[in-house]
Amino acid sequence: MDPSDPLDTRILSVGTALPGPAVDNAALARRFGMDPLWEQWVDAFIGTRTRHLAVDIDTGRIRCSLADLAEQAGRSALESAGVAPADIDLVVMGTSTPDQLMPATVNVVADRLGIDQVPSFQLQSGCSGAVQALDVARQMLLTGRHRTALVLGGDVVARFYDLRARLASLPPSQLVNYVLFGDGAGAAVLTTAPAPDAVRLRAVHTRLVGLGREPGAVLEWFGPVDRHSERAPAAEDYKAIEQHVPVLAAEVVDTLLDELGWEREQVDHLLPPQLSGRMTQRIVRHLNLPGAAEVSCVDETGNNGNGLSFFQLERALAKLGPGGRAIGIAIESSKWIKSGFALERD
């Protein structure tokens, strides 16, 4: 796209919200009765030092909902952008863990923020959800029918976080969830209005690549008829994830570079997939962008799914100088979606 195109989309601001204090691996080990060996293993192989949880692991009390976190992130983004709720004419949200199946959480959040009489969409999405939401918002803004969008994403896994679980006897596919994931939400204000020195969202790419592939991650939901089902509420095929994510992430980088005509050396910052501290390190090595500074958050925030890209975006906006370029990547392992976006500051 021609940078002078008046319908280019710009990111005015990003806001994020995390519940409660950071929960470190020692606190998890204490809560679940795991020994120092387990804690050392998490440090060595997962590499996620802390996460934030909507559930208080000492009391079991649920502190907040996804709507609470998304409202906080959205309000923060609006205030940072200096945009009033009445100026938002499009809302898009991504989540894999809506508070309820109906009403959609996006509409609860819009109501709390005072946003009304606008199109609103919620994507049922995993780790690529933030990028998918950015894509939907950007495409709708580029039609010219809308001018300023609030894009939201987040997850709250509290109802899957069984504090009575005996981690020592859980199968590996369920065990990893207790150390990988956290809760959080983010938001961004996008506009096609002129904004000096803003960061442009130059390209967004999302592709379903799930043909013939088994899901790499599954989150179940239950109703009164099947609530006692034996199905695992949450499971990860972490081996498939380790195998496929680095490859898919590299494909996304190549696609974005081709689309924009950028050379690898021209990328200043890389926002890589945030599976866990260790996995992200491995992926970064695989991506071969030696000149790009890594912008990651997962070792502090935990993997909060649809929120992650916003936490990285928030950090990246603070780092990108004039003319700075960044590429962000997210890979959804549920039914396999690869996605990415490119940023450039004027």
């Binding site: 020994d35 060996l37 293993w41 192989f45 590996p172 990893v176």
Partner: peptide
């Protein structure tokens, strides 16, 4: 074999032997 199996096995071994295992030694 993978790292999660390692954790599972070490935990089971600690239980079976009643001895603490050092992860650096196991690695």
């Amino acid at each position: 074999w993978d790292s999660v199996h390692l954790l599972h096995l070490l935990t089971a071994l600690e239980h079976a032997t009643g001895r603490r295992i050092s992860l650096p030694d196991a690695l």
